[in-house]
Design a protein around this nucleic acid. Structure first.
Length: 434
RNA sequence: GGAGAGGUGGCUGAGCGGUUUAAAGCGACGGUUUGCUAAACCGUUGUAGGGCUAAUACCCCUACCGGGGGUUCGAAUCCCCCCCUCUCCGCCA
């Protein structure tokens, strides 16, 4: 969330930046500041009363000790009134804080000054491209056909098991999925310095709130309960990304400066309800309710977080380069960025069968927006407590990568070549009709 | 799921209704002493919110002893609910 002090002191600047997102959030600022002012006014009032009560209570204690019971009783009955007032005002403050926090949690991050101003995805800026679209001497098939003919994914049976959007990977398809996961984890851990973790695949609400998924995007999550026990409903959610657990690893902690930067990478399945999303219900692997992903998370000092963002994107690019897949990097405009992000690059990989670029990675610097929600700080040498900047990036998402890969490496006879870097994982250089 | 034990500052650990503004020890930091190190001695040592300010300096106030409620003039301390850890039993991959 935003720093309430910054909102107080640089109100116009914050409004201007929020307006760039084209989401109307700047209108919430005035209401936020009204609540903030009222809260402080009431706090001043109630804290004075509490100071009074503390003083008098101490006096009562002394009177009791000296057996001056009548005087003590007098003071007790007086203070009873003070106590009533205190609980009244406390309740008001709590109500105001609830509303203030609710507003604060629903206001997105402000964009970094380098972010191109724009309304939607059509205003995103292509930063660079790598490789070239492969040329085929035949009409390349779409992944759905390849999956069917090669027995890589059984969409129909997946749908039988859990519904559409839950692919059942089979045979070489399952193996390819596993190979990609392992390949990516190996590179990030052994070459890029990330510390591998395997997080819980369900998290509590605090984690979801910490990364900015909740309260605003609660509809996108699968929320679970234990059996028929409705009491437990809503305590846990299936993770929409490993970012949810991994970014929260140090929630409510004060790290020491020399522990930074922290680099984490994690494989996890990702579960998304995709309520209301365009393209839900389309066949294939482009948009599913469950997909695999290798996620990268960094906690870094604010000074160099933007360098860290560039290197994180480069880490994700390495994967695509080793796989020999053509891709492009987009700098998302202000209107297309995620809720918590101050600056985001998307990586889109070319899928020749689809004839389109597919987003396989989104790398964001959330600056201190999440750290403030999660209450993560670190102590500098001079003893100052600072919110680290938190970055997250896909390195990369599967499913779409799987699509791009088999569509790019397909051959005229209907088989799919295995890129060299995956051959040791796949134990073969060719996926043929089984 | 059942039975029991427990959760107090960076750590150990006392306190179980009012000189606790959370004892004491350890650690850490600063200083004195010292040829150097060690030791000894002295001092400092949490977090958040609010007020005052140019100040994220000082000072003042409030809250915080796993979390949330309650009783009371007053709660680390008493009561209720929840969470977590440990030991044993049950069930289970």
């Amino acid at each position: 969330m935003l720093d309430i002090r910054l909102v107080r002191e640089k109100t116009d600047e914050v409004k201007r930046l929020l307006a760039q997102r084209r989401a109307g959030d700047e209108k919430k600022i005035d209401e936020l500041l009204e609540l903030d002012a009222e809260r402080r006014r009431l706090l001043g009032e109630v804290e004075q009363l509490k100071a009074l009560r503390n003083r008098v209570s101490k006096e009562i204690g002394l009177l009791m000790k000296e057996k001056r019971l009548e005087e003590a009783e007098d003071k007790k009955s007086q203070t009873r009134e003070t106590g009533k007032k205190i609980s009244e005002i406390d309740a008001q403050v709590a109500g105001i804080e609830d509303r203030r926090n609710d507003l604060l949690l629903n206001i997105p991050n402000t964009p970094h000054s380098s972010v191109p101003d724009g309304a939607d995805e059509s205003d995103n800026v292509t930063v660079r491209e790598w490789g070239e679209k492969p040329v085929f001497e035949f009409e390349p098939k779409i992944h759905i056909d390849l999956c069917e003919s090669l027995g890589l994914v059984d969409f129909a049976r997946g749908a039988k098991l859990a519904g559409s959007g839950f692919p059942l990977y089979t045979g070489a398809g399952a193996r390819l999925e596993r190979a990609l996961i392992q390949f990516m984890l190996d590179i990030h851990t052994s070459e890029h310095g990330y510390h591998e973790v395997q997080p819980p695949f369900m998290v509590n609400r605090d984690c979801m709130t910490g990364v900015g998924q909740f309260p605003k995007f609660v509809d996108q999550a699968y929320v679970v309960q234990e059996g028929e026990d409705t009491e437990t409903f809503g305590k846990l959610c299936m993770i929409p990304t490993a970012e949810a657990p991994v970014a929260n690893i140090h929630r409510d902690e004060i790290l020491s400066e020399n522990e930074l930067p922290k680099y984490y990478c994690a494989y996890s399945p990702c579960f998304r309800a995709e309520a209301g999303a365009a393209g839900v219900g389309t066949r294939g692997l482009i948009r599913t309710h469950q997909f695999d992903k290798v996620e990268l998370i960094k906690l870094v000092p604010p000074e160099n977080s933007y360098d860290e963002l560039e290197s994180m994107v480069a880490n994700a690019e390495t994967i695509l380069q080793r796989l020999g897949l053509h891709y492009r990097i987009l700098h998302l405009c202000t209107g297309d960025m995620g809720f918590a992000s101050a600056k985001t690059y998307d990586i889109e990989v070319w899928a020749p069968g689809q004839g389109q670029y597919l987003e396989v990675s989104s790398c964001s610097n959330c600056e201190d927006y999440q750290a403030r929600r999660m209450n993560i700080r670190y102590k500098t040498g001079s003893g100052e407590k600072v919110l680290p900047h938190i970055l997250n990036g896909s390195g990369t998402a599967l499913a779409r990568l799987f699509v791009a890969l088999i569509e790019s490496y397909q051959r005229s006879d209907g088989s799919v070549g295995v890129p060299q870097v995956l051959q040791s994982y796949m134990k073969t250089d060719l996926i043929g009709v089984s």
